[in-house]
Each structure stands twice: as C-alpha cells, then as structure tokens.
Simulated assay, not measured.
Amino acid sequence: MTDKSRKPVRKAVFPVAGLGTRFLPATKAVPKEMLPIVDRPLIQYAVDEAREAGIEQMIFVTGRGKSAIEDHFDISFELEATMRERGKDMSALDGTRLAPGHCAYVRQQEPMGLGHAVWCARDIVGDEPFAVLLPDELMWGKTGCLKQMVDAYQEVGGNFISVLEVPRDEVSSYGVIDPGKADGALTEVVGLVEKPKMEDAPSNKIVSGRYILQPEVMRTLENQGKGAGGEIQLTDAMARMIGTQPFHAVTFEGRRFDCGSKTGFVEATLALALEREDMAAQVRQIAARLLRG
C-alpha cells in the first residue's frame, strides 16, 4: 500500500443540490436539508458526523434556492448579539459556525446525478482523498459512521463505502456489494450491483450513503457517460475502480434513517426525540396517547 492511498481524509463533499420534491410544499422555499429533526436541521447531523471524523473542510455542492444552508453555517451577528444581551444560553449554536476557509460552496447547475455532483467539487478536492456524505441518510450511532470508516481507512487505505445488512427480501431496493474477504466489520468489495433481484443478490449488504474515495474517481467521472435514469452515477465510477485500487466496505454499527422519505423522516424525529433526556418521557406519553386513538 502506497503512502498516497493513506493520505489523511481532510475534505468532505455534501451533495445538496436536489429539489426535495417529495417534501413539497415544505421545500418550495426551504431546502430539504434544512428541515429539522427535532431541533437541528438535517444537514447539521451530517456536518457534525464529518467533524467527529476529523474532516477540516466541508464542500457543499448546491443549487438554486439553497442559500439558507450557507447562512446556517455563517455567523449571525444580530441573533448572537441579542442572545448575549438577554443572557441566553449560546450552546444551541455550537457547531453552526464554520470557521473561515473551512467551508466552500460550488453550484451543480444541472440535475445530472450524484456522480456529476461529486465531480463538480473536483477543483476544491484537488489531489486528495475525500469523503462524501449524503445528508438524506441520517446515520446514528455511539460512534459516527464516517469516524468508523476513517478508522478503518487508516489501517488499509484505498476506497471505502459504508454498508448495512438488511433482510434478503429488501435488497432489490438498494445497491448491494459483491463481498470478498471479511474481517469483522471490514469487507473487501469485489463488485457493486444496483437493485438486484433477491435471488441474484451477491449479499444482503447495502450501500448506505457514506464514501471515502481516492481522487482518481474524479478523472473516472469526467469521462463517464450517463447511466441509470439518464444521470452520471457515482456507483458506476466506483465499480470501474474496483480491481485498480483497494476497495472495502465497513458495516456500520448504528442505525440508518432514510430521511429522503416522509416516513423515514418521521421515524428519525421520533427515534432521536426518544433519546433526549429533556423530552423522552413526554414523547412516550404523546405516542402512547396517539396510538390509543
């Protein structure tokens, strides 16, 4: 393994240019990533996860109407001054201020797929390995998903994806890895299959929205044609790199919430509220009352 393939992972790409049409009308004027899970916007959970993993620079691939994300991670002078004057607790704003130079914003001007969104960040990523976090996938665990991946990356280097095990009858809804050698939570990836039939699936380990990629993927994406849905797919680029660079999966020890769906969003809100000491008892009472009808 070369030193290059174990360069520290300092940068993370957040593809946040989507229109969020499944959440209309809520997302007509508010980015989907700014909708709150309890009292923090969805994007905040992904950024906090990246910081825990040692990420130094956050790269947001945005589209029109996403300025609220940029404002959220900026200093709000009027708000902070008013809170100080009134003696309010400022800790609620912890994590919402990204230091100068620690965040960057680039536009994906056309909705051409996840691969294209990642490629839009190529000049900022440069010749370094980088992480990709899909904020729709809220990964919740005692240790963050990306931190688990970075720890494994430091041991073996190369490319990484996070995976979760699901029942076999659910694999046709996801991308699935073709596994090689396994060592605990670490599994060699010898292939990727998108939404296979249950009987054809090489495993029940699904790709779950977190990646560590070597910079060569950008050159692969640059020369890649459109794939499924007429879009430039990141999965296709990763599949082409398997065999040319080490590729592993880390089985995430934690829970995944699909906040790209309304039911997943509600589930995440309820689950995280039930873990909050300041509201868990009341939420349980409310849920019990509602279930009684």
Rank of each mutant, 00 (worst) to 15 (best):
D94Y: 00
P215L: 13
P215S: 13
G225D: 09
E222W: 11
A152M: 12
P31F: 02
L270S: 02
E165K: 10
V132P: 08
K32H: 06
A117S: 13
Q57V: 15
R107S: 01
I212C: 04
K262P: 08
V38M: 06
M279Y: 00
G243A: 08
D178L: 09
E188Q: 15
G65C: 03
Q233F: 04
R40A: 07
E188K: 13
G209A: 03
P31C: 02
L290E: 11
L93K: 06
L42A: 02
I206T: 13
A26W: 02
V156E: 13
G264R: 04
D3Q: 14
L93N: 02
D200R: 08
S173I: 12
G293M: 11
F23C: 00
A99D: 05
I206G: 05
P129Q: 14
Y174G: 14
V125D: 10
G209V: 03
R168Q: 09
C145L: 03
R219A: 15
Q233R: 14
A50Y: 07
E253K: 11
A104H: 09
P202G: 09
L272N: 01
L134K: 04
K28A: 11
G158W: 04
P246L: 12
P111T: 00
P246N: 05
D169S: 15
C120A: 13
E52W: 06
Q245W: 09
M58H: 05
D127M: 14
D3H: 12
K88L: 04
Y105A: 09
A131F: 10
G141V: 07
P179H: 07
E70G: 05
G209L: 06
P25H: 00
V189T: 09
L291I: 07
L186G: 11
A131Y: 08
P15M: 01
K11V: 10
P111V: 01
F14V: 01
K197W: 13
V13A: 05
G229M: 05
L24T: 03
R219N: 15
R22L: 08
D258K: 06
L24Y: 10
E216M: 12
Q214M: 15
R84D: 02
G254M: 07
D48E: 12
A104N: 10
Y45V: 02
H72S: 06
T27C: 01
G175M: 08
L272S: 00
A237H: 15
T143K: 06
V266I: 13
D200V: 05
M34E: 06
L192G: 06
G18R: 02
E188P: 11
A46N: 03
C259N: 07
L19Y: 01
A46Y: 01
R289H: 09
K7A: 14
I242S: 06
Y105D: 04
G95R: 00
L79A: 14
I177H: 05
G227N: 10
A281D: 09
E155Y: 09
I55E: 03
Y153S: 14
A104S: 14
R276W: 00
K181T: 14
G54H: 12
